[in-house]
Design a protein around this nucleic acid. Structure first.
Lengths: 226, 226
DNA sequence: CACTAAACTGACTGGTCAGTCATTAATACA
DNA sequence: TGTATTAATGACTGACCAGTCAGTTTAGTG
């Protein structure tokens, strides 16, 4: 969907290629196509539950083709988690770009909007489910996720909070702890939003409202003591 | 092993039950034995990944025996989630019993200790993983979990917060929102604690310290505005 | 003790699916 | 046009595993 590229071969002056597109040569596109299909199938069924035939069908490719680009199912899974995660971080960091002249509260507010958008996206929901459910069996991927997603996010928040404390906007607090608090509030509730129908209390509330509640709650915990 | 019979005379009348315990009749115990084994196997490998042969072996029972008590793999899974969840709630509610004369802060503090103990137990970690990973395919179980675990917990916290607000201990806040904030802080960080090795920041910190950080942070967000 | 009913067993079956490979199609180049 | 090379296919294989059932063991009863 996102990753699957537009084929440069499609741009054709004379349209001589009326061939079955499935058999057309386009080796550069294959990995992305397959990874995208894998993302959906693994996301839906998990590592053990997903079938390679389904991934192939979704990618518009024969099963054998998958094995031209990935040595086996597990490697495909690993690679899918890696690429999806990387794509996710990049889009999140773009959104969270900060201007240093702003107040810490304003920075936090902007970070909150960007991050929440990302957390509520389909891609994150799937990654999150896989991380929580399957990554215990892949210590290296877990580490990768911890370093590249969690730690990076924490540093971002921690820096803002530290600056806010220094400016007297916030009460004194260990930045790492403060970052962990905001992460947990936001991540957990983003996951719950995805299961809205089960939580009557959330059913009538918009995503945006929840995001604001979280931020207000968080800011009131950081409020300086009189 | 099966064909080579044990002579019934071998059974000493003084110690009558030296029979292979695996073949002793105990139909009342079977479901619990099987469910316990299922808990471990499903918890480790997920619904699709777990093998009934392994569950049987762990339960000390033949595969066929499982089918005397449960119609199929999925039903066993459902039943396992149900019973585990119920056991979990009951143990958690015992811990959280409150005395009405205490201050809201003290009540919250006691609830926090009991709940955290539960959240950090093996049983909860496994249930939580299954809920997040698999329960989307079982809407009825998801609903059951939402009603019996999440909603119950929220009501408990909400009531305490409401009382605290009425007494002027806490600032005015929607009790349901306040409950959701504490739930998300606690649940998410309990899950992270289980993956300690991946988060260098948590590695050197005790569970108890994190629990206190959460509670202090929470209380400071509820602090009345001057 | 003999007989019956209930509990239990584990070899077997049939379906499923990861992974293979002989074959076919497309392209590049002479 | 022919030949070589690379890309892709999908029928096939073998392992695996949920679910079955004919047979075995145990306990209860007269």
């Amino acid at each position: 969907m996102t990753i699957a590229n537009v084929s440069p071969l499609e741009i054709n002056p004379a349209t001589p290629n009326v061939v079955d597109p499935r058999r057309r040569r386009a080796p550069e596109e294959r990995p992305a196509q397959i990874l995208d299909a894998a993302f959906h199938e693994f996301g839906e069924r998990g590592l053990a539950g997903a079938r390679l035939d389904d991934i192939a069908k979704r990618a518009g490719v024969a099963k054998g083709t998958i094995y031209l680009y990935f040595p086996n199912k597990e490697a495909l899974f690993r690679e899918m988690v890696r690429t999806t995660t990387i794509a996710a971080i990049e889009s999140a960091e773009q959104l969270a770009e900060q201007e240093s002249h702003e107040s810490a509260e304003t920075q936090l507010r902007r970070l909150s909007v960007g991050w929440w958008t990302f957390l509520r996206s389909d891609r994150f929901q799937v990654v999150q489910r896989l991380v929580l459910a399957e990554l215990q069996h892949f210590p290296d991927l877990m580490q990768f996720y911890a370093d590249e997603v969690v730690a990076r996010g924490r540093r971002l928040i921690g820096a803002i909070v530290e600056r806010g404390t220094a400016r007297g906007e916030f009460r004194p607090i260990v930045p790492a702890t403060a970052a962990r608090m905001l992460s947990s509030l936001t991540m957990m509730q983003a996951i719950w939003c995805d299961r809205r129908q089960c939580f009557p209390e959330l059913a009538g509330v918009t995503d945006e409202h929840i995001r604001e509640e979280i931020l207000d709650f968080y800011l009131s915990a950081l409020r300086p003591i009189q």
